[in-house]
Structure formats: C-alpha cells, structure tokens
Amino acid sequence: MPAATTGVKARKFRGEVLITEDRCKECGFCIEFCPPKVLEFSKEFNRHGYHPPILVNEAGCTGCDLCGLYCPDFAIYGIRVPVESPAATASAAGVSPLGNDTSGVESVRQGGGI
C-alpha cells in the first residue's frame, strides 16, 4: 500500500475515483477492498441516510476500479487518467470501454499521480 502513496516516479496514468453518493448503501466493500486503502466513510449522509465513501488520500488512488467491481450499488468506480491531461474527465471516458453518458453523476474525487 505505501508504495502507491509514496511513489513519485513518473507514471503515465493517475487514478481517479467517481462516486454517485446517493446510490451508496454503506456496505463498506469499496473501503475494505481498495488495495491502497484510500477510501473512508464520509461523515455526511446521502439522500437515503447512508454514509458514502470519500477519497481520503487523493495521491493514493491507482484507478484500479476494484471499488467499482465490488460496489453492489453501482455507486463508485475508478478510472485511470493520463497524467498529461490533468482535468481530463472527457478523455477519461475514452479510457473506459464501457461508454460515456455524462448524465447524473454527482461528484469526482481525483487521485494524484503514482
């Protein structure tokens, strides 16, 4: 885990995690199984009274998308963003093979380069 947070070597991608907070049911899967353990429960409640996850170590997210695979509620996923294009959420869509509908997402927590 520390490797992910302390790595300073130039990498092509950095991780970004995207959370649809109101879908979360606070099962904790994403937090538990995030390899670098960069997620925690937020202090805030979502619309349904659950605490969604928040990214607590932005630099640590690798964009591995394990959170996305685990989430039973389709509330979170990780992507890898080329470091050359910092705020490139649009190009992030290109990274995903699964489409790029932009409707309905509430917030992004961006991780740093690794």
Binding site: T20, I76, Y77, A90, A92, G99, T102, V108
Partner: peptide, 15 residues
C-alpha cells in the same frame, strides 16, 4: 470535487 464526469461505466448495461 463536484466536477461533472462520465457516468459509471457499468451504466450502459443497466436500466
């Protein structure tokens, strides 16, 4: 934070 982003990539497979 709060940036509009692409929807979850599983979205096209879901209703």
């Amino acid at each position: 934070m709060g940036v509009m982003v692409p929807f979850n990539p599983v979205e096209p497979f879901l209703r």
